[in-house]
Simulated assay, not measured.
Amino acid sequence: MKRSAIALAVMLFLGIGPALAQNPVEITSDQFVMNETAHEAVFTGNVVVVHPTVTVWAPKVVATYGEGGTTDIETFIASGGNVRLKTKDQDATGDQAVYTPGDQLMRLTGNVTVVNASGTVNATELVVNMATGVSTFTSAGGGRVTGVFTSQ
């Protein structure tokens, strides 16, 4: 039961719909703690989450869930700096990634860099609305969003 809840949390974080729930998700880490009192599952130390469409690396991954139990995921957080999300078409890095199923928003913050075949974008924050497919890059502290794009 708990293992499938973690797989669901990972799939929600990665924007993978229930139709793909049968795909295997492999999570490795130095330590895994399931704290039912705090309603959280915590992976720490060299965490690697592998799904057929995306791989996530982070020092720490925490899934919190509500009163509905482990299928009621409230947040999925990859943190500790050096957070990386890699798909077939792009590679994104930042200090922290947070997915909240309630609003279907994925936020990658802190030294964000996204690289794909058409170029590179750097920003302070990337917000991806999983429901609409809209990605918004922003910058803070007087900085600017920068991009270098190449023609194909």
Rank of each mutant, 00 (worst) to 15 (best):
A63M: 11
E67F: 00
G133P: 12
V83A: 09
H39C: 01
D72E: 09
N116Y: 01
Y99R: 08
V114H: 04
G80L: 12
A63K: 02
T55Y: 06
A92C: 12
Q90V: 04
E67C: 00
V61I: 14
M106K: 02
L85A: 15
R107S: 13
T70H: 00
N129Q: 08
S135P: 03
N111E: 04
D103Q: 14
D89G: 00
D89F: 02
G68E: 03
Y99N: 13
T124C: 04
T75V: 10
T53N: 10
T70Y: 00
A58T: 06
Y65W: 00
H51S: 06
P101G: 08
A38H: 11
M130D: 05
Q90H: 07
I73P: 07
G94K: 01
N129V: 04
D72A: 13
A78P: 12
K86P: 12
E67S: 15
E125W: 10
K60M: 10
V49I: 15
T113A: 13
L108K: 04
T44N: 11
V47A: 01
I77Q: 03
V48R: 14
Y65K: 01
T71H: 07
T71R: 09
D103W: 11
K60C: 06
G119D: 08
N111D: 11
Q104G: 01
V115L: 13
N122R: 15
G45E: 07
L126Q: 10
G81R: 05
G66P: 10
G102E: 13
F43H: 02
L126R: 08
A63L: 08
S79M: 14
T93F: 05
A58S: 15
E40F: 09
D95L: 08
L85D: 05
L105S: 09
N116A: 10
G102T: 12
L126D: 03
Q96M: 15
N122D: 13
S135H: 02
V49Y: 03
A131P: 13
V54S: 10
H39P: 00
D89A: 01
P101Y: 05
T120H: 07
Q90W: 13
A131Q: 15
T109S: 14
W57G: 08
Y99A: 15
P52T: 04
T53L: 12
H51Q: 11
V127F: 02
D91C: 04
T55A: 07
